[in-house]
Computed example of a mutant assay.
Amino acid sequence: MVTITTRNIVFFMIILKSLIIQSLSKPFIEHKNVINFHKNINHQKLYNNINHQKLYNNINNIHVEKLWIRMLENKKKIRKRSFSKKRNHIVYTNIDFKDLKFRLNILNQKSQIKILNYNSLVHASIESYLRMSNYIEKIISLSYFYFPMFEEKLKKFHLPKELKYLAIIESNLNPFATSKVGAQGIWQFMPETGKIYDLNIIHNVYDDRNDPVKSTEAACRYLKFLYKKIGNWELVLAAYNAGPGTVDKILQRYQNNKKDFWSLLEFFPKETQNYIPKFIAINYVMNYYKEHNIASIYHKYKYKYKDTVLIPIKEKISLKILSFYINIPYKDLIFLNPQYLVDYIPFDNGKFFIRLPKNKIILLKKKNIFLLRKKES
Rank of each mutant, 00 (worst) to 15 (best):
I4M: 11
M13T: 15
I29A: 08
V34K: 15
V34L: 15
L46T: 04
N49P: 07
N51Y: 09
V64Q: 11
E65R: 02
K76Q: 01
S82H: 14
Y92F: 10
K98R: 14
R103H: 11
K110P: 03
Y118R: 10
A124K: 00
S128I: 11
L130V: 11
R131Y: 12
S143F: 00
M149P: 05
E151D: 07
K155D: 12
P160F: 02
S171E: 06
F176K: 02
P191M: 01
I202Q: 04
Y206M: 00
D207Q: 09
V213H: 01
E217G: 00
E234N: 12
V236L: 04
A242P: 07
G245S: 06
L251Q: 05
S263P: 03
Y275T: 02
I276V: 05
I280D: 06
I282G: 07
M286L: 04
N287Y: 01
Y288C: 12
Y289M: 04
I297D: 03
Y298C: 11
Y301S: 02
Y305M: 09
Y305H: 12
T308I: 01
K314R: 10
Y330N: 00
L333S: 10
I334H: 03
P346D: 02
G350Q: 02
F353I: 13
P357S: 01
P357D: 10
K360Q: 07
N368R: 06
L371D: 04
K375F: 05
S377I: 15
